[in-house]
Write a protein that binds this DNA or RNA. Structure first.
Lengths: 201, 201
DNA sequence: GCACGATACGGAACATTGTTCCGCTTAGCA
DNA sequence: TGCTAAGCGGAACAATGTTCCGTATCGTGC
């Protein structure tokens, strides 16, 4: 969906192969480093993990916010893209649950992002929108399939659920047992109103 | 209200006179520097303005969040404390207007604080509460006096007003003409429903 | 008023991180 | 295969956070 660092680029010549490799490596490394150290992690940590020099980093991401934004979008895309595979592979309720857990994992790597979002940098303005626009339809589809299968009630609002799980998963601390338990609680809640004789797990 | 940096101190021996001077100087300097450069301003800028060494700074504020929190509380106190004098010196409606402008000035120095508040540092958890607990009664009193004088309507909610002006004053950019105009607009709005034949300015 | 111990001060030194610069390497192309 | 522009690496520099310790000051008991 996004093949480069700057989203505002008008018409930029296609990246040379090695440059594309660098960008990919940096995004992958940054995602890992952000997950373990937050978005304020030192540049050197990222370049080291990516195996590139500092110059290369600043060539592709002159502003830190460019990198943060790019990593965020890439991870949103990846998480949203996981849904179809789950839908194809599992029954609707399982697909739903597994995707919610995947989503919680996504949220868990967002330490420090909340503060960045409030920094006032206009680069971030579009991120909440990107978040909603990508996730809401995905979850709506999962919910609808599960509802049509009679596994869950049909009046759940996707956006409500996304925010609820977003809040549940914020901590990131200790084991994610807690988040997982809360998710299954939510899913049980969804099942409660299903047409058939659903029973809590 | 708060005579030292750490709010969690159990029973700490009273500060030596020179230490108290240092703390005061640092808080005053930090307030100025924060206002002009945001809460991420370099430590050296603060110590230079306060006329103290780096060691002194870290002795009193081991964590930056300690300083930010202390400055915030001190300024909340000062702003809230300005109300009685205004009440004594001006008619109720004037006192109300002047205090709201003072409050807007307070908000205008809070660049970067919003991001800090979302950083997750538990030191900040109590600040929003402190903000509300100090300002709401003050404004409620000003509103009530103005309402009893027949200058404004009596159904205004203090907390609503605080948040509204907080939002109006956020920018801090250009001249504060804009904020001032918006405040007088709000006050006119309050006057509109007054019992007597109040007329917009 | 004086001496003494505890407390606090200042600022140089060190550590960490952000950012730039430039000689060298490589991809893409004719 | 050779040329050129794009890209790379990492040393060097700059800005800032943080520590350390010799010196100065305060509060106190006499």
């Amino acid at each position: 969906m996004d093949d480069g660092p700057s989203t505002a680029g008008q018409q930029r010549p296609p990246l040379r192969a090695d440059a594309q490799r660098s960008v990919d490596a940096l995004l992958a490394a940054a995602a890992e480093v952000f997950a373990e150290s937050g978005v304020d992690a030192p540049v050197r940590k990222i370049t080291a993990k990516a195996g590139v020099g500092a110059g290369t980093f600043y060539r592709h991401f002159p502003q830190r916010s460019d990198l943060i934004s790019a990593v965020f979008r890439r991870e949103v895309d990846a998480c949203a893209a996981a849904a179809p595979a789950l839908t194809a592979q599992y029954p609707p309720l399982d697909a739903l649950t597994r995707w919610l857990e995947r989503f919680a994992g996504f949220i868990a790597t967002k330490r420090g992002l909340s503060a960045a979002l409030h920094s006032g940098d206009p680069v971030y303005d579009s991120l909440p929108c990107y978040f909603q626009q990508n996730f809401e339809p995905v979850l709506a589809d999962l919910l609808e399939r599960a509802a049509q299968a009679g596994a869950i009630r049909s009046d759940a609002d996707p956006w409500d659920l996304l925010r609820a799980i977003g809040n549940l998963a914020v901590p990131l601390e200790d084991g994610d047992d807690h988040t997982q338990r809360m998710i299954s609680l939510l899913v049980d809640g969804l099942r409660y109103g299903a047409g058939a004789g659903a029973q809590p797990s």
